[in-house]
Nucleic acid binder design. Structure first.
Lengths: 124, 124
DNA sequence: ATAAACTCTGGAGTGTACTCCAGGTCAAAT
DNA sequence: ATTTGACCTGGAGTACACTCCAGAGTTTAT
């Protein structure tokens, strides 16, 4: 499928898709005879995984490293696992952090809510 | 207290603290006669809140806007509350997202774990 | 067959949030 | 009194992750 189709499916931009390929975050995509990119389903799955990990804050550099290991074959599985475990732990910490911040926000919102209510009482 | 003390307490850098003041994310900090910053406890509390909101991904611009509203007095309370509520909702979505990504990571790690175990069985 | 729409490359530009000077002043210790 | 270390300002530089061209070729619809 052509790049515009991938744009629709992944909601990444064509520029981003080409950029990812350029920096080695995606493999060289197969081309038609005239040189136009022809994405396969497997490419889409990889793009989705990349998208997902990026949303989780995993730096592009780490993902490139990860796929370099994938290309090197099965003996890199422990190293790949290490990367994922590390990222999981980062994510876990982040999740805990965000939960606390969420609580703080709820508290602050509540404070404002009460101030507004008090003002309304003063008026009446 | 001087900036080095604030660095210790908040683990922000001196450059960042001065930068935050420059862009109006912190108020002008009081100075000694010779022009050296002399932070108060209230400044620390504000810095902590800023730090917290930054970790949650709230853009610096939004925080500046928020403190602009604080300076304008009580009639901006509903608007301030709106900002916090908006950020809370963003955070909630993000939290859900991250939870899903965490699950995906756990799954992937498990897959690798199983591959490693299978290999060990082959050997024995 | 020709206009309109899509795709290509390589390189430059953008936004966000710092981070790092240079060149100078100030404070504390010897 | 002078060395050492902390602090000051204004401005330039950096890192990351895109994002946006210009100029050229390709495909599709009329």
């Amino acid at each position: 499928m052509r790049i515009s189709e991938v744009v629709k499916r992944t909601s990444l931009t064509a520029d981003t898709l080409r950029y990812y390929e350029r920096i080695g975050l995606l493999p060289p995509i197969s081309r038609t005879d005239s040189g136009i990119r022809d994405y396969q389903d497997i490419d889409i799955r990889r793009i989705e995984f990349v998208k997902c990990m990026r949303r989780a804050g995993l730096p592009v550099e780490v993902l490139i490293e990860y796929y370099k290991l994938v290309r090197q074959g099965d003996e890199t599985i422990p190293e790949r696992k290490r990367i994922l475990v590390e990222q999981r732990d980062v994510l876990k910490d982040q999740l805990k952090d965000l939960q606390e911040i969420l609580n703080l926000l709820e508290y602050k919102i509540n404070v404002y809510e009460n101030i507004v209510l008090e003002k309304e009482n003063e008026i009446s």
